[in-house]
Design a protein around this nucleic acid. Sequence first.
DNA 1: GTTGACCTTACCCCCGGGGCAGGCTAAAAA
DNA 2: TTTTTAGCCTGCCCCGGGGGTAAGGTCAAC
Lengths: 131, 131
Amino acid sequence: MNISQAAKQAGLTSKALRYYESVSLVIPGRNPNGYREYSPAEVETLRFIQRARSSGFSVEEVGELLQLYRNPARRSHDAKLLVREKIEQVEEQLRNLKEMRSNLRALADACAGDDSPHCAILDQLAGGESR
Amino acid sequence: MNISQAAKQAGLTSKALRYYESVSLVIPGRNPNGYREYSPAEVETLRFIQRARSSGFSVEEVGELLQLYRNPARRSHDAKLLVREKIEQVEEQLRNLKEMRSNLRALADACAGDDSPHCAILDQLAGGESR
DNA sequence: GTTGACCTTACCCCCGGGGCAGGCTAAAAA
DNA sequence: TTTTTAGCCTGCCCCGGGGGTAAGGTCAAC
């Protein structure tokens, strides 16, 4: 299968597939004309990558997941550990974003939002009172 | 004030200050020896930038906030609009992260996490059933 | 005078690709 | 058959927001 077909099957772009090859995640064979030829198994691996990426794993972490996927002597404990670490990272990002949001809400609430130049948002960013 | 002192006062790094200068946010004067010389007002602006950045605004958006800050004919409405847009962006990120988290939790819950190679996490990433 | 701390510019690096240039190749239309 | 169009190839620069480091100038203390 050609690169663009494989990309479509996996919900990715051709560029992403070339990138994943460059970082040794999926290295397809080549036709005599030099075109990449993706086997059905490689397309499955690409779908694996797409799902793992959209669950928040970095490309490097996807590489670790793929190593487990390809290793018949794996222990499911190791996969679960990766997922739990990712959950904790996501939760930290959630905490950070929630703090930003409450911060922003306080700014917005303090500002009249009218045609006057007086603005509590700019005042607070400038002076930092009651932050 | 020298760059490292100004950076310390603002809670930033010297490198960041040079970067902010390169993108025209704060352009300090120069001493005869070529060193950057930050005025107290410029240090205040740097603190403004630091607070806006830690509230989630991009460098480009901070530039817009600074334009308002420096414009005595501004309308507070415009500042409030920027803040509300940022709140919506933050909330979309929160939604995405929460979906990731529930996704990850489902993966983790389905996996025994023992010494066996059978792993529901890898199965689901591979096959996509019950995602 | 010399040492160490600070400053300067200039370069490459991170992630995860996007976009484009220039050149082949394959498939479809005339 | 020829031409057009579409798809593929590699290689390069770009994004944010700086971090790290190198090579060199400067300043203050001892």
